[in-house]
Design a binder for these strands. Sequence first.
DNA 1: AAAAGCGTTCGACCATGCCGAAAGCTAGTA
DNA 2: TACTAGCTTTCGGCATGGTCGAACGCTTTT
Lengths: 242, 242
Amino acid sequence: MIQSVDRALRVLAVLQGARRRSLGEIATAMGLAPSTVHGIVRTLVSHGMVVQERDSGLYRLGPATLRLGNVYLDNLELRAHAQPWISALADRTGCAVRVAVPLADDVVVVAAAPTPVEVGIVIPAHACALGKVLLAYGACTPTDRPRRMTGETQLPPRDLPAVRRTGLATEVEEAVLGECGLAAPVATADEVCGAIGLVVPAGDWPLPPPAFDALRQTARAVSRELGASTWPPAAEDEAASA
Amino acid sequence: MIQSVDRALRVLAVLQGARRRSLGEIATAMGLAPSTVHGIVRTLVSHGMVVQERDSGLYRLGPATLRLGNVYLDNLELRAHAQPWISALADRTGCAVRVAVPLADDVVVVAAAPTPVEVGIVIPAHACALGKVLLAYGACTPTDRPRRMTGETQLPPRDLPAVRRTGLATEVEEAVLGECGLAAPVATADEVCGAIGLVVPAGDWPLPPPAFDALRQTARAVSRELGASTWPPAAEDEAASA
DNA sequence: AAAAGCGTTCGACCATGCCGAAAGCTAGTA
DNA sequence: TACTAGCTTTCGGCATGGTCGAACGCTTTT
């Protein structure tokens, strides 16, 4: 772990927390001398990862971050293979559909139907169906101190062995009040690489059996295209927590 | 400029060029020892900026890049203020509308109407109307060796003083054959921060005068919301190249 | 006019990242 | 099965390059 690179990435993480920050704010947030942070930030600015506002001198994220994220999406086989399937799934079920990948103890939405507006949003893994699936298969790392998002959030997530058995996870208003979710894993030949889920208003919950079947079929089909031989995927080498 | 941070960002740039690369490929592309690159890459992996495929050992961009790009968009006042205006502009003109910001010698699309699918794409500044606007006002840096995209690409871009006078730039099949563009600058109180443009099939070119007027009005309105007092914006402190 | 608060620059110390070489690892081959 | 070749990964010593404190210039406030 290279110290200065790690610090640079932590600067970006700090900049994610607010629209704009002063050099001093970043420095105190990281427990470093302002001059130390200045060198790092200048390097980030030179690559467009950070921009400095001309008048105020404050720093914010830069357009190079957007380019990186876009290239990431373009190179993601999961997204390419899932796109036609989730459009069809959204049509068949009338639900909003999301595809997500693990990012530490969060999930990131990489594709959505019928509208792609949710692409890029981040949700704590323990609070959504997509995340429960990825936790169950060890693709997401559990947080030691999970955050309660709504009054319904279950801490810590239960029934992960059941998720592994059935290949499905549910969530009832744990992330957003009024929203429920159902999700299933997507795997390649040797690992769970993401999850596909339905999101519906609480009034439409529970979903009818055909929706369950349609989701299962979609997850299986996408997994097969990515090289998986069985579905639901095997439980990997994870030691199951109760 | 911190050396190791700079190298880390160059690793990300190398990873943008191909779907996946081996450690050795990255090392030779950067002229460094593989072990040197390994330490950098490991740090990037620990933050999710890069992921290593489990089976092949190859590296690719990671989901943290998408999160960063999404936060960048959410925090961009230009995007927030432009969104309603460009939707209306797309309705009025029937054209595709794009909003872009400068990134060195490229432009990055940060908003688009009627469909947002183009958000995130990168275009060389010298080859598109959006980029010519940003070059004219010094927001983009000219490349020393601009790349010819189509047979129509003008190298180097001409008529930049005229762009500053009129506040409009045009492009006829210089970036993509069959596509033409018209663009206008958007400014804050003290700098040109982006450009708004129309993109139309070559068959619809030249655009009728009402489209010119609608674009001008939109660019002026958004600039005003961002704090600009005059439009077209003053030519800054740039020394105009003939 | 004075002062406080910022970002920025500079210089010296020494911690830290860099590289060469050797070690694991997987896959392909006789 | 044993061997080879290619890769990623680990390890250790050298010196390069990053870190921090202090001083500077600037803008804004009182």
